[in-house]
């Protein structure tokens, strides 16, 4: 019996990236699931319509059936990534191969500059983004939480920006909410919070800060119960989006009674 999570969805509140619309504001990474069956179940529960895939040498890793077939069955769009690339050149070749392999111009552009933190290499990222846009790709760059870099990426034609909340797989959540909200103000394209999500409240916060979508991978695939966590993330993204649209109350230093003083009885 699945968890009952009948959270409200704003029917007409669609996510649009490069002219394509999505009902779900949750992007899913396919990495880290112990089996393709569990991955498929988590995708279904998450409601995600756009999932990332990687390219690796044939025969590397465990072959456990056809990933592409399982994802086609799930009815989701593929967003190939350039994970593992450390230079603009490697990312360019990988993106071109992905276009060939998956018959899509969409690419989640990752250019990694540090092994321990997997933080993006900003100059290489910008260079690769510009070239891929010129080659007709729809580029969604994985970037730092730097509003200036986000703007530069949009200036060269990126269709969205995917700033990190914290390092990939760290589950540390959003380390700099201020910067994420600045990025939302700095660019006119969709902002997809990518990397660092640890649990549902992180996803809700991202949406409350104004992000248009959230990408989760390890937070779901490495959870003790990935399918249940997929449902939690779905609900959190919806809750955060609704809260953003509803407009939160400002923070105050002192209390502000919601019950009026007028008509208060005296008992002395």
């Amino acid at each position: 019996m699945p968890d009952s999570l009948e959270t409200p969805v704003a029917e007409e509140d669609l996510l649009t990236i490069a002219g394509r619309t999505f009902r779900s504001r949750l992007l899913l990474g396919t990495g880290g699931f112990p089996s393709l069956e569990l991955m498929a179940e988590a995708i279904a529960r998450s409601g995600s319509e756009l999932v990332t895939v990687a390219l690796r040498r044939v025969g590397s890793g465990e072959q456990r059936g056809s990933l592409v077939d399982v994802l086609a069955q799930a009815g989701v769009e593929l967003l190939p990534n350039t994970a593992g690339c450390h230079t603009a050149r490697d990312a360019l070749i990988t993106a071109r191969l992905a276009r060939e392999a998956f018959a899509t111009d969409w690419i989640k552009l990752e250019v990694i500059g540090d092994e321990d933190t997997l933080l993006p290499d900003a100059p290489e990222l910008l260079r690769a983004a510009e070239e891929l846009v010129d080659e007709g790709f729809v580029v969604l760059p994985y970037t730092t939480d730097d509003p200036v870099l986000a703007r530069r990426l949009v200036d060269v034609g990126c269709a969205a920006v995917m700033p990190l909340g914290s390092p990939i797989g760290s589950g540390m959540g959003i380390r700099n909410p201020y910067n994420i909200s600045l990025i939302r103000e700095a660019v006119a394209v969709p902002v997809v919070l990518d990397a660092g999500i640890g649990t549902a409240s992180d996803a809700a916060l991202a949406m409350e800060l104004g992000c248009d979508a959230v990408m989760a991978a390890s937070a779901i695939s490495r959870a003790q119960d990935p399918v249940r966590m997929a449902g939690a993330m779905r609900a959190a993204v919806q809750a955060g989006r609704l809260a953003r649209l509803a407009g939160r109350i400002p923070r105050r230093r002192y209390a502000d009674a919601s019950t009026p003083d007028e008509g208060l009885p005296a008992f002395d």
Partner: peptide, 10 residues
């Protein structure tokens, strides 16, 4: 020659 295929990845 590099022959690549789809793998699970974030």
């Amino acid at each position: 020659v590099e022959v690549l295929t789809a793998m699970q990845g974030g």
